[in-house]
Amino acid sequence: MEESTYREAVRSALREEMLRDPNVILLGESITGYGGSYAVTKGLVQEFGPHRVMETPIAEAGIVGFAVGAAMGGLRPVAELMTVNFALLALDQIVNSAAKFHFMFGGQWSVPMVVRTVSGFGQLGATHSQTFEGWFAHVPGLKVVMPATPADAKGLLLAAMRDPDPVMFIEHSLLYSTRGPMPDDPETVVPIGRARIARAGSDVTVVAYSRMLLQALQAAEVLEREDGCQVEVIDLRTLRPVDYPTVTQSIQRTHRVVVCGEDWRTGGFGASLLAELQDRCFDDLDAPIARVAMADVPLPYARNLERALIPSSEQVVQAVRGIL
């Protein structure tokens, strides 16, 4: 089995789909000569030319609006928004155009496009360190995907590029250099809307996605070593639609659950997930649902303060211990 970094996995999905489907185009800020802010699209303009790998002005709303139209015109655009923070400038196009057209125009056409963007932090300051998946997962009409592993980054991106609906594909800046096994068949598609049991266990379920999956797996090792606790870790992978059957079946086995995310506690994705799990699993629960989330504070620059805020494996360990 071959290994790949998360960054290479994303690039390889883009490249293979561009080879397979001449209608796939990429567009975004500094994605050609520069190779992308996180070097994901490096080399693609040389291979496919500037008409399929398009350098755009710094105009996020325009980029997404253009991609919506390109999709309506028969292309399969993949728009890169440098970070999820900048996606706020494109919210109208994502929410009012991409997510609405199929419904609002009576199903006459869909908008098959992908918005690739990036969550993450690292002393970037308050406007560049945010986590907004909950906002997108809030919107009917969007599909929201947040891969945690290289194999999922590739397989889910392939699925997203072939999906007839608009997909928010949110990568994580701190995962780009992580490595992981890739399936032998390079065309392995990971279906949208399927969670994965990343580690089997019988005592407690921890639901995580994106970078928090890694924190949850580390926490599971600590808990096994220090507490003899068998943690089942679920990688949600898709935030809309959520694979509730996989999660609720796990809770029926463990009777305890911790919900993990990096977004703010108030109104965050985890809050909605928690509410839904309580509705679906109340009778199966032996303890209140616990939650790991970001404190309701903007991210500071100072390293020590930022570290104090970012959800960590230690916080997952504490959350599990709190409900055992």
């Binding site: 709303a61 325009g62 609006g65 253009f66 919506v68 139209g69 390109a70 309506m72 015109g73 196009q93």
Partner: peptide
């Protein structure tokens, strides 16, 4: 306005 621009590009 950008949507029509994208359609024309297609």
């Amino acid at each position: 306005i950008p949507i029509g621009t994208g359609m024309a590009y297609a």
